[in-house]
């Protein structure tokens, strides 16, 4: 499994243009938007606004980033040269998902860690910790969902459209954190620090497992039939 993860990370990071675009979209754009509009924002408000913008961007770019290393179906050479030697072929797919989740999460976790370290006297460690948990959980869910959609749908664009719809519905209508991809910014502060919300949010882990099990069935069927 390790070699598969390292290799997927390498493949992803070698696509420099995608990596740079990812950094710009995740870091530069939210910061610029907040600095343009947020002269009256407190530090805590700025934290939430940037997080909200970043999570929307992150969720939307997940299918595209995933597509750069996983095309949704096994290419012939992958079957003949790579899966040929892997005893558990599903690890290959899992490694791709993990690499995408790891890279995007790492950028955001690093960003908030630096942010917090610079202003630790004004931002509580609870907020930092809650933010990190939300980032990792939400991205893991988004990546697992994008992976499943890539196996189900023929084109990345269809997966991206569905992710956009789910994100909009989540923000606008879904009040339960157990089902939302991301949540309404009006509730963000209250929700982020509320233990019952955090516990509910862990229900995403169950959804992630279900998505991965479904993906496994589809992937194995592809390996056998291709």
């Amino acid at each position: 499994m390790n070699i598969q993860i390292l290799f997927s990370l390498k493949l992803l990071l070698k696509q420099r243009s995608i990596f740079v675009a990812m950094l710009v979209l995740l870091i530069a754009v939210p910061l610029i938007l907040v600095s343009l509009n947020g002269s009256g924002l407190s530090l805590r408000e700025a934290w939430y606004t940037i997080l909200h913008l970043q999570m929307i961007v992150a969720v939307l770019i997940v299918p595209i980033i995933l597509h750069s290393i996983w095309k949704g179906k096994i290419q012939l050479f992958e079957k003949q040269l790579i899966l040929y030697h892997i005893h558990k072929p599903f690890e290959y797919y899992m490694a791709k998902l993990f690499a995408v989740c790891f890279v995007i999460s790492s950028i955001l976790v690093l960003f908030y860690t630096v942010f917090w370290l610079l202003l630790f006297d004004q931002i509580s460690i609870t907020l930092w910790y809650s933010t990190i948990v939300q980032i990792i959980l939400t991205l893991a869910f988004a990546v697992a969902l994008a992976g499943l959609l890539s196996l189900l749908l023929k084109r990345t664009i269809y997966g991206t459209i569905l992710m956009i719809l789910y994100l909009i519905i989540s923000i606008q209508f879904i009040r339960s954190s157990m089902f939302a991809l991301w949540f309404n910014p009006d509730f963000i502060e209250q929700m982020m620090l509320e233990p019952s919300f955090l516990i509910q949010r862990f229900a995403l882990l169950c959804w992630i497992i279900i998505l991965l099990l479904t993906s496994k069935a589809l992937f194995v069927r592809q390996v056998v039939s291709s």
Binding site: I3, L11, K14, L76, F77, L81
Partner: peptide, 20 residues
């Protein structure tokens, strides 16, 4: 039809196969 990941160098491709 031998194909591989386009962004990998010859050395990197062989490195991966060695690991596999």
């Amino acid at each position: 039809k031998f194909d591989f990941f386009p962004n990998l160098t010859v050395e990197e491709a062989l490195y991966y196969i060695c690991k596999l």
